[in-house]
């Protein structure tokens, strides 16, 4: 009886200690978020003078203003496109490579993997110039090729259609694709590394079973390895999505017109050289953060549920 009570007391104190810790950390996390929300509802003159977290008369109109002034509509779609394309590309390419490095045998595999690792570690701050020159050269070659074949195309398609298509490729399709590939390259090494770590850790029994069932390598990758690595896939999805969503330096370097720019371009409007429109900036940032929070909410569930089903069998 006595021992039991002591046990319960110890457990209770332990539990309350855990909750106090969790709450303190959670509070520091939620405070800046609330501050951002609060500031987004103030005016430029009250944003730093009004100490209340949520103002008495909230300016909901800020959100509308931020959306229209920052021209978020176009940028939003662009960002959704870039993020989807890059994350999708990275998941496919990096999981194939990581699976190859982790499970399959071929000469040079170790060297190649360490090359990716090294690339992940060397930051190349000076590389923006060669990267820009490279992309520009590819564009030139592509354009020359298109102009060279356009006489033949004109015979098949109407002339203005060909012209428009070339213009479309030059101004829209090519810069967008180039940016997507650059961003895939940015996240690739790290994703391969994370995924390989998880693949290495996974038991091989299921794959063996699938092999006996007659699955080929690609089939095993897709039907066994990928579902099992779901927590890791969720991690790299969140990581890369956040990375692409918040990226703007490379975007401004590679993309050359407003219509192709991502969401961060909208936020820049509020941060002038001299004047920063804090309420609209905060409103814009809040709107920018929402999709990322949703992505996190969706994918973090996979981190948790992930492997438990597989483990039941194993």
């Amino acid at each position: 009886m006595d021992i039991n009570l002591k046990h319960i007391i110890i457990r209770r104190t332990k539990l309350s200690f855990i909750y106090v810790l969790l709450s303190i950390v959670a509070l520091t996390c939620v405070f800046p978020l609330l501050w951002m929300l609060g500031s987004s509802l103030k005016t430029q003159s009250t944003v730093f003078s009004d100490p209340s977290l949520i103002p008495a008369s909230p300016e909901w109109n800020n959100y509308y203003l931020a959306w229209t002034k920052g021209e978020f509509g176009v940028y939003f779609l662009n960002s959704v496109f870039y993020t989807t394309a890059v994350v999708f590309g990275i998941i496919i390419i990096s999981s194939l490579a990581a699976y190859g490095f982790s499970r399959l045998k071929f000469p040079g595999s170790n060297i190649l993997f360490h090359m990716f690792l090294a690339a992940m570690m060397i930051p190349l701050p000076g590389s923006f110039v060669p990267l820009y020159v490279l992309v520009n050269n590819i564009r030139k070659v592509l354009l020359e090729f298109l102009t060279a074949i356009s006489p033949f195309l004109i015979k098949i398609f109407p002339a203005h259609f060909v012209q428009q298509s070339i213009a479309f490729i030059q101004h829209q399709a090519f810069p967008r694709t180039a940016y997507v590939f650059c961003m895939i390259n940015v996240g690739l090494s790290l994703s391969i590394y994370i995924l390989k770590t998880f693949f290495d850790k996974m038991p091989g029994a299921l794959e063996d079973a699938a092999r006996i069932d007659g699955c080929n390598k690609l089939g095993i990758w897709r039907h066994v390895a990928l579902p099992l690595a779901r927590p890791a896939l969720a991690v790299i999805t969140i990581f890369n999505a956040l990375n692409v969503w918040n990226e703007y330096i490379l975007a401004q370097l590679i993309l050359s017109s407003k219509e192709t720019m991502p969401l961060q371009r909208g936020l820049i409007v509020f941060q002038g050289m001299h004047v920063t429109d804090y309420p609209l900036l905060m409103a814009g940032m809040t709107m920018t953060a929402i999709p990322i929070i949703i992505i996190y909410l969706i994918f973090q569930k996979h981190i948790i549920k992930g492997i438990t089903a597989g483990a039941v069998v194993g």
Partner: peptide, 13 residues
């Protein structure tokens, strides 16, 4: 192209 650091990089490239 803004902020100015980003602009400078673009112009130099």
């Amino acid at each position: 192209y803004a902020p100015s650091d980003s602009y400078t990089q673009k112009v130099r490239a």
